[in-house]
Design a protein around this nucleic acid. Structure first.
Ligand SMILES: [Mn+2]
Ligand SMILES: [Mn+2]
Ligand SMILES: [Zn+2]
Ligand SMILES: [Zn+2]
Lengths: 136, 136
DNA sequence: CAAGCAGTTTAGAACAATTCTAAAACTGCA
DNA sequence: TGCAGTTTTAGAATTGTTCTAAACTGCTTG
């Protein structure tokens, strides 16, 4: 399992207009070959370094931004200076545990948001984010 | 409220446990003697400098943080490195115009959020933030 | 109202997160 | 195999914010 290249990932990257380089594939595996996750640039960098796929921090940032721009990831900002990259790009919302910085998904299909006003004129809806902040 | 019978800002600051210094009163007036607003530290600093109440940037940050901690302001984080301080501390939500960084309030009383899951165990609800992201 | 002290302000240093730079290393392709 | 374009990288730079330590000011007390 380790070391083998996953052709699906390479294809997925190519389809996103990104060359499947060693670094990008390594990061993509860490991100997409497991359950949905929420990583920071620092945490992913530490993880890559700990395994044996060292990737520079600049490349981690570049890659996360590219993946996000390609729609492979979504970025969630919960607090000043705390940006998470989320492998779950479908509709869902978040619990943010303020006391320890943890972020948890919850599905949006049982949540109903009714009565939202129309967007300011001249604007188009992009996304509705719900962040439920909790404390221990 | 900021109308005819101008509430004594000095009293308000004292009640918050803050000495009504020249700088704090100047910033409080800019913030609370007009309609609700959303400022950044930079924008408030620029505004103070442009009027004739120059206040150091460090003091602007200190003051905004103190006002927030005292419940006079609330902080809204919408994008990496973009923290707004909001003079509207009541229940309400936001439109964020991603294309130009503008933040607009909308009342929460007509919005219904139903079916939110229970907070993760061991945690207590702190606040629910809804950010409606739109683009021009 | 003067002294004194805690609380406050300030410039500038320090920091943390992120982006930029420019040179070296790759990749895909002719 | 050579080459052009792309990617990676270390380190510098930038940005937003906090910290430091010295100067200053608001408030209390004598
Ligand atoms: Mn970014
Ligand atoms: Mn803060
Ligand atoms: Zn998520
Ligand atoms: Zn607001």
């Amino acid at each position: 399992m380790s070391g083998a290249t996953n052709p699906d990932l390479a294809v997925r990257l190519r389809e996103a207009g990104l060359r499947p380089t060693r670094q990008r594939v390594a990061l993509a595996r860490a991100l997409f070959e497991v359950e949905h996750r929420h990583v920071t640039a620092e945490s992913l960098h530490a993880e890559a370094k700990a395994g044996r796929n060292p990737v520079s921090l600049a490349t981690v940032y570049n890659t996360l931004n590219q993946f996000r721009d390609a729609g492979l990831l979504r970025e969630v900002v919960v607090a000043p200076g705390r940006s998470y990259f989320d492998t779950n790009t479908g509709h869902h919302h978040h619990f943010y545990v303020e006391t320890d910085g943890e972020l948890h998904d919850f599905p949006s299909d049982k949540v109903t948001i009714a009565g939202l006003p129309a967007p300011p004129k001249g604007t188009r809806l992009s996304r509705v984010d719900v962040i439920v902040r909790v404390r221990r």
